[in-house]
């Protein structure tokens, strides 16, 4: 009897060592669960134009949706292996920590308190947003510093209001607001001419502008007065999955930087550039340490495209939202999107 017990204990001990040795390379409970269920569960907005919204075929589309598709492409070689959970801003973090979703990609601003207190990890910044001002072109205003005393339509009780108050105080401008409780009311009031200025995040400004009868009659001023880095979020405590999430984001940027896109990725397989060879898995194996295959980034680029492709398709100047790259351009093009080297 004793002997049997001992053998069992030995076997269990051996099993444990074996699994912990494996764990040294890749442990990700989340990845295992995702592979078992066959899809990535991705939390999105209830509909924010350009970021995540149902398209004409009733399929989720947008910059942040493309990120989820990229993760699915890296894991499954299938960008459509994603299920979407639309979340309100109140329930988004609970849904993530309760394990209802694997990735939260829902216009979530990266702040210190969220990163350190909610048991979540921000992967990176998919989109550098910030609060801006829109005025009527006929008013001839070219800078936010000319806005002293102008009537500003604003949503009450938001950080938008506080940011604007701070900015006006810091620049000794007269702060004159017309306050509303609802975003739609704010837009309506600005449209009806009850105030001269409308302020909110610049991506939302651009989206609202494109709904106006004559979008060309409104200008968005160049000043951005707040930092709103929007990025995907994963649960804290699963470093393996965090790595996948983070390097999926970097792969999108690296592909753009190296000029690899969904259209030319197959030709690029034959490229002599060592950086491209590493990215596409022709040389070296950067996928296995992530728990993925060697061609993980190739799959992302092939099935989803690089960062620039997603940006131009969903929020770029040629779309209805019409946002220039600005801060979201690559570092060498005057923006701050930057990927560490893949090597």
């Amino acid at each position: 009897m004793m002997k049997t017990l001992f053998t069992v204990a030995m076997a269990a001990g051996l099993g444990l060592t074996a699994s912990s040795a494996l764990a040294q390379t890749v442990t990700s409970a989340t990845l295992d669960a995702i592979k078992a269920k066959g899809y990535v569960q991705c939390g999105v907005t209830g509909g924010v134009p350009g970021f995540s919204a149902p398209d004409a075929n009733n399929v989720w589309a947008g910059l942040e949706v493309d990120y989820c598709r990229a993760v699915a492409a890296a894991i499954f070689n299938d960008a459509e292996a994603v299920r979407y959970t639309p979340l309100t801003s109140q329930e988004r973090f609970t849904a993530l920590s309760a394990g209802e979703i694997d990735i939260l990609s829902r216009t979530t601003t990266w702040t210190m308190s969220r990163d350190t207190q909610l048991g979540i990890k921000f992967v990176g910044t998919m989109f550098y947003d910030g609060q801006g001002f829109m005025v009527r072109a006929a008013d001839g205003i070219t800078s936010a510093l000319d806005l002293s005393g102008a009537a500003i339509c604003i949503e009450s009780g938001t950080t938008t209001e506080l940011n604007a108050a701070d900015y006006f105080a810091a620049n000794s401008l007269e702060f004159n607001t017309v306050v509303f409780v609802d975003q739609d009311e704010v837009v309506k009031a600005y449209e009806d001419g009850r105030c001269d200025v409308y302020t909110t995040d610049s991506s939302a400004l651009a989206a609202e502008r494109s709904k106006f009868a004559d979008p060309a009659a409104h200008v968005i001023l160049p000043e951005i007065i707040s930092k709103e880095p929007l990025g995907p979020v994963v649960r804290q405590g699963d470093d393996g999955f965090f790595n996948i999430a983070r390097w999926t984001y970097f792969a999108l940027l690296e592909a753009e930087e190296l000029g690899v896109s969904s259209t030319n990725v197959d030709e690029m397989l034959a490229s002599d550039n060592p950086a491209i060879k590493r990215l596409l898995g022709v040389e070296g194996d950067f996928g296995t340490p992530l728990g993925l295959t060697k061609d993980w980034a190739y799959q992302i680029i092939k099935l989803v495209g690089n960062y620039s492709e997603s940006y131009e398709k969903h929020v770029g100047p040629s779309t209805a939202i019409g946002l220039a790259r600005g801060l979201n351009a690559l570092w060498r093009d005057g923006g701050i999107q930057y990927s560490p080297p893949i090597r």
Partner: peptide
Amino acid sequence: AGTSDTNWFSP
């Protein structure tokens, strides 16, 4: 959600 359909952006 339909109001976020950029193809139909209108007043």
